[in-house]
Structures are given as C-alpha cells and as structure tokens.
C-alpha cells in the first residue's frame, strides 16, 4: 500500500469540501479521479500534498502517518504534484524551475546533477528548446508541460496530476498518456490523474477510477464499469459522457 486515506475531511467555513474520504493507492497503480467542478478533487490533492491539513481523518504513505507532516517533508518521501492552474517560478528559467524539483524532491540532487536531470526531463516532455526562457513567458500549455517535467524530476513514487490534460488537443493528450505509461513502467510511479470531463482520456489511462461528488467518494472500481454506472451519469447531470 503506497497511499492510504482514512475518513479525511476538510471544511472551509460551513462548506465541506472533502467529506470523510477513504482512499487506497497501490504502488505503480494508475488511478483516475473524476468528478464535476467543485466536487473536491483539488482539495483532495491539497490534503495529500500537504497544502492543507485535514480537519478529520488520517493519511498514510508507505505505512507511515503523514497527516500533519509539512508539504516539504512529504516530497522527500516521494510525493509530487502539478497544479490545476500552473504555478511556475516566474522569473526563473524553465530549466531552473525543473532543476528546483530535482533538488528538493525525493531525488534530492545537488545543483549540477539537478540541472542535468532538468535537461533530461525537458527532453522527455518535449520542451527542451524552451529551457532558457523565463517561465512566466510560457504559454499555458507549455507551463503545464513544464510542471509535469518538474514533478517528474522530483523522482516521486506518487505523482498527482491535477487537470493536466485539460485544454490539450487529442494529439497532445495521446503523447502525454504514452509518456506517462513509459515513465510509470520504467520508474514504477503510481500516478493519480484528476479530471473533470476528459472521460475518454481517463478510460485510456486509468485501470481504476474514483468518482467524487460534493466532497464525497460516490463510487470506485474498474474504469469502464464505474463510468457506465447510472449514478455517475446522473452526477454529470445527463451530460453526454464521452466514454468511447
């Protein structure tokens, strides 16, 4: 068991953003978390990565309790993430951004080593040409790819991707999915990807899916089975699910 959440709850004032969620993730697993806008997916990530501490419940990583561990200690254990709205270190170059991931993530690299790793990761995600550009000058898509490179450079055991694929065209999506597949196999990373609407991509990517609804876990199970469940279709208010 890589990651385990037990009854995790997070409130913002009166709003219960994440409501008593249990979740288990195996090493090297590919899990999809889907749910409409506002269902608590990003908050769940913030709880796992340590941006917020839960009001109730406990979180374990590799059997060790991390419920109240600060975020910078969690990365050292092997947790890495991207942000739904990218957060580059704007005035640093793309290469420096990725190198920062390598230095302070689980990779814990020295400066020279980290800069080399950054080059490798940038080649991997296909934006090596942009390495000397100031990160704030990137397009939104490039920023997302940079965040992916930065997270991969941390050499995590668990990679959390928040709406990484949103806004990408199908060709990009396929490339990223192949890339994730490759990296996952090579490095045995567990990947959790969260999406609102890209069901098609999720069916290609995930072996297992969790559906969030109003802060709660609505249902979980094998991907196709879950996405065809009437409850899930109802959650999306009859929106046509492009399950393919």
């Amino acid at each position: 068991m890589l990651l385990k959440l037990e009854g995790v709850t997070k409130r913002f004032g009166g709003l219960v953003a994440v409501n008593s969620v249990d979740l288990e993730v195996e090493e090297g697993e590919k899990l999809g978390v889907v749910g409409p806008n506002g269902s608590g997916k990003t908050t769940l990530y913030n709880l796992i990565s340590g941006v917020y501490m839960p009001d109730e419940g406990r979180i374990f990583f590799e059997g060790k309790e991390i419920t109240n561990l600060p975020p910078y200690d969690r990365t050292k254990l092997g947790i890495a993430r991207t942000f739904q709205i990218p957060r580059p270190f704007g005035s640093a170059t793309v290469r420096e951004n990725v190198a920062i991931g390598a230095m302070f993530g689980m990779a814990n690299a020295g400066v020279d080593e980290a800069l080399e790793m950054a080059d490798d990761m940038l080649k991997l995600v296909g934006i090596y040409d942009l390495k000397d550009k100031e990160a704030k000058l990137l397009t939104p898509l490039e920023k997302k790819l940079m965040e992916l490179a930065r997270a991969l450079a941390m050499k995590p055991k668990l990679l959390l991707l928040d709406e990484l694929l949103a806004g990408m065209n199908p060709a990009n999506i396929n490339e990223i999915l192949e890339l994730l597949d490759r990296v996952k196999k090579e490095e045995n990373i567990a990947v959790i990807a969260m999406v609102e609407h890209l069901m098609h991509a999720i069916t290609k990517f995930a072996e297992r899916v969790v559906v969030m609804h109003q802060g709660m876990k609505l249902i979980e199970g094998p991907t196709m089975e879950v996405l065809n469940d009437p409850k899930v279709i109802e959650v999306y208010l009859g929106e046509k699910l492009n399950v393919g």
Partner: peptide
C-alpha cells in the same frame, strides 16, 4: 550557485508552490 540560492528564487516567486516542491521555506 547553491541549493540555497535556488530555494530562495523559488520562495521569492511563490512561497506556497515552493513548499510543495519540497522547500522548507
């Protein structure tokens, strides 16, 4: 040229993101 310098650049730009990238700001 040191890890300290990179950590400082990161936290100057975005303290919260820096924390999530593993930096004890």
């Amino acid at each position: 040229n040191s890890r300290l310098g990179y950590a400082l650049i990161a936290l100057r730009e975005d303290e919260e993101a820096a924390k999530v990238m593993g930096i004890n700001v």
